[in-house]
């Protein structure tokens, strides 16, 4: 399975990453290797095998809809790069 530099650029764009030419080359190779490894699984016959959504055997772990509780805005905003009042302040968003 070969991954082209174009594939890397497409995924990088979706992940909001800026890569140098050298990085793109290296990542194309590494991602290709990973996909080759995963593709080994495609050799297995999985007819009649139900797709698995999760490796845990456990099911139905619920939380009851009880008394609400939160942390303070100061705690929430403690790691924010910037704030204005109790809002996160971020680069301008165009809707």
């Amino acid at each position: 399975m070969s991954i082209t530099q174009k594939d890397v650029e497409y995924v990088a764009n979706l992940a909001r990453l800026e890569l140098t030419g050298e990085e793109k080359e290296r990542l194309a190779r590494q991602l290709g290797d990973i996909l080759d490894y995963i593709n080994m699984l495609n050799r297995l016959d999985t007819t009649n095998v139900e797709p698995m959504a999760h490796a845990a055997i456990e099911h139905n772990v619920f939380r009851e809809d009880g008394e609400p509780r939160s942390i303070t805005p100061d705690e929430t905003l403690a790691n924010a790069p910037d704030r204005q009042g109790d809002f996160f302040k971020v680069p301008k968003v165009i809707d």
């Binding site: 939380r63 609400p68 509780r69 939160s70 942390i71 805005p73 929430t76």
Partner: peptide, 30 residues
């Protein structure tokens, strides 16, 4: 466990889970 109440002051109904801190674990509301 944050409240869903409408019209609260900004970011008062928040916690590490709903602000997407790394390492937190969501648990489904039954």
């Amino acid at each position: 466990d944050c409240s869903t109440e409408f019209g609260a002051a900004p970011n008062t109904h928040t916690c590490p889970i709903c602000v997407g801190m790394p390492g937190v674990l969501p648990v489904l509301n039954r």
